[in-house]
Amino acid sequence: MAEDWLADVRKYVADADEAVVSKIVSYLGIALRNRDSSLVSFSDKTETDRVRQNFLKKKLGLTHDDATLDAAIAEVGEQMKGDRTKNRVTVYYLLAQHFGLLTLFGGAAGASGSAAAALGLAGMTSSKDGGSVDTNGGAKAGDADGDKPGSVAPLAAAAGLPGAAAAAPAAATPAPAPVAPTPPPVAPQTAYSSGEDKAGGGMGWLPWLLLALLVLALLFFGLRYCSKQETAVAPAGGEVAISETVVPADGVAAPAAPAAPAAIPEGAGVVAADREGKPMLTVYFDTGKSVVSNDLSTAASSVKTYLESNPDATLAVSGYNDPTGNAAANAELSKNRAQSVKAAIEKLGIAADKVVLEKPAETTTTGADNSAARRVEVTVKE
């Protein structure tokens, strides 16, 4: 590497993991070849929005609100404010460390570290009256009974332990204490002077003992679960985790969760999807380029199969560009991209009269990530 990325990261994290830095460099790939794209400008909102959408949400799989993610980015920017060149590799390392997700790049993390990360991400601390207080300054509603005896669910939920919600009803009320046999009536003086039960406290301690044991059990199994599922939080390589459908006791399967949208590549690539029940392709391009990704040959199988089953259908090919640069040059670039995709589709065995160039009303896409704007859409027309 022309740039010593590891040395730059270690200016901020002395024991930074070399393997993690290497995987972040591999993830960024072509973005590091250009000096401008290898740096992060924290004063450019478009740039910080791109970091939030492409890295924090798509790569790390975070589901926090934008304000929380922007605050984390600003915190890293403040940490690096004395550095004239804010390398993208270092920024991404510090953000992954901030959210406890270096494991996505092969970093080591123990079970207790996972629980601590979950607490940090939740941004919650317990107030004196049992309510939860957002560390960003806002009070959270709905947990005013957090410090009452037997309220175990808020503790487990604040730690981010799986199964906390299901355990809440059982944990909210301690198990009833066994009822001791009623002793024969004796004179008060005799009961206190017999010397056989000096504690004189009965069994009032039993509910507290049961509560403590229940909390310990929840923490133990929760931490153990976190350690086993650590690598399943957000699969590496942009893959979407698939969970099995849980069938309730009555035998009726719960409705399947909607499929997550495919991630938009930062450069050239192809994403296959459905639109109104028909297959479509979105072909993405590098900045200023019209070269079609090799992924098209695999992704186009769905539209090819559809055309074979529907002889009257055709494919509409429409090119788009991002708003940067000269408008006339961008319009020409959109046209060239569409023509390149048409030629590539025809090479796959689809007849030329089945592939029609269709100029969209607006070829320049604004208000979106530039990576998403540099595209050609292939849709089915009937």
Rank of each mutant, 00 (worst) to 15 (best):
M280G: 04
L210S: 12
I350C: 04
V215S: 00
K23G: 01
G150K: 04
A236Y: 06
K140V: 09
E239I: 09
S22Y: 01
E230C: 01
A7Q: 12
V152W: 00
A331W: 03
D49A: 14
N87Q: 09
S22L: 04
P360L: 07
L6V: 15
G237C: 06
P207R: 12
A199E: 03
A167L: 10
A74Y: 05
A329M: 01
G269E: 10
N87P: 02
L218E: 10
T135Q: 07
G142A: 05
V378I: 14
I350K: 08
K347P: 02
L333M: 13
E358N: 14
P149S: 06
T63G: 05
A141C: 00
K45H: 09
V152Y: 00
V152F: 00
G267Q: 14
D250L: 15
S340L: 11
I24E: 01
A157T: 09
V20M: 02
S194H: 09
V291G: 14
A171D: 07
N87A: 09
P207E: 10
W205T: 10
A313G: 00
P181S: 03
G163H: 03
G367D: 07
V378F: 07
N34A: 11
V40P: 07
P183N: 06
P360W: 11
A71R: 13
S302K: 15
V233D: 02
D83M: 13
A175R: 15
A272C: 08
G277P: 03
A329L: 08
P258W: 09
